[in-house]
């Protein structure tokens, strides 16, 4: 086989594989959207779900998902940022560091059901938090930390060493170099990681069934007192999310319009993740341009 032919063959193969990936992705997303979007309506988004009758919506589940995501990011992002900075900029190259890296890798491949059961035993039962958003957010933090830490570490390490030397040579400390030069340059990579992990958190069900619970008590969106049981802000109330709702409706739902509810919910889930990804990417680019004053 001559070079030209093998090149053609390899290119063809690569295109085929890309086509397979694209087909699967578009097929899945298309299927979910096509079967779900017709069920969407303002009513569906703004009505609480119903246990027995048809016509229930997903108002509380949608809010719970967003609230849980925000809480999870508030807990996990600072920890992951600190750990990522340590691993990329400060960690000496020795066995302690490599044990830490291995532990992070193991944690990242932990099945989410296990994370959920662990969260159930420790937070829900032992610490008597009950099924609550907070227990769910902490469980998701365990689930989210390894990927986020690894992502922040790689984004920081991808900034060329010459940049660090430039900072050091100007008499700046490692800390000032890291926060003033390396971190701004790593923003787009870190943001991509946050988006990816946010998508995972948003779509997670197994870990939440045992921690945030499967019930959606009626919420009062006018009650801003986070300590009131019916306040939408109360982090200690049980909270069913969109993904858990899909699972529950399909597994044990007795409403007559199961298909409509579960397809519609799945479509909302996908659409929210899409909106989140696109807007976060735009925000990230703007932030990067502002920090680095490139066009």
């Amino acid at each position: 086989m001559n070079a030209k032919r093998s090149d053609h063959l390899a290119t063809g193969l690569i295109y085929t594989f890309v086509a397979i990936v694209v087909l699967i992705l578009f097929g899945l997303i298309g299927y979910i959207l096509v079967s779900g979007v017709p069920h969407l309506s303002w009513h569906f988004l703004t009505t609480p779900s119903k246990a027995f009758a048809a016509g229930g919506g997903i108002r509380d589940q949608l809010f719970n998902s967003l609230y849980l995501l925000i809480l999870t990011l508030i807990i996990s992002f600072p920890i992951a940022l600190g750990a990522g900075i340590y691993l990329a900029e400060y960690a000496p190259d020795n066995w302690v560091t490599s044990v830490m890296r291995t532990a992070i890798e193991v944690l990242s491949s932990l099945p989410s059901v296990v994370v959920g059961l662990f969260g159930y035993l420790l937070f829900v039962i032992q610490f008597q938090m009950g099924f609550s958003i907070l227990a769910g957010a902490i469980a998701l933090t365990f689930f989210n930390l390894p990927l986020l830490t690894r992502n922040i570490e790689t984004s920081l390490s991808a900034v060329p060493n010459l940049q660090r030397e430039a900072g050091i040579a100007l008499g700046l400390s490692s800390w000032k170099t890291t926060t003033g030069i390396i971190l701004p340059a790593a923003v787009p990579g870190i943001l991509t990681g946050v988006i990816l992990s946010a998508g995972r958190v948003f779509g997670e069900a197994a870990a939440l069934i045992y921690t945030a619970g499967q019930s959606a008590p009626v919420l009062n969106y006018g009650n801003w007192n986070a300590f009131d049981p019916n306040s939408f802000l109360n982090p200690l109330r049980p909270a069913e999310t969109l993904a858990v709702h899909i699972w529950k409706v399909n597994a044990e739902g007795i409403v007559p319009d199961i298909d409509a509810v579960s397809n519609g919910t799945a479509a909302v889930l996908i659409i929210v993740i899409l909106i989140f990804n696109i807007s976060a990417r735009m925000l990230g680019n703007r932030l990067y341009n502002k920090l680095t004053s490139s066009k």
């Binding site: 010459l162 030397e165 430039a166 050091i168 040579a169 030069i181 701004p184 920090l291 680095t292």
Partner: peptide
């Protein structure tokens, strides 16, 4: 290092203005 500055082999301006 503030008294003794350094310029490197490859240009390494910061990703800033």
């Amino acid at each position: 290092r503030k008294q003794i500055g350094m310029v490197f082999q490859r240009p390494n301006p910061f990703a800033k203005s």
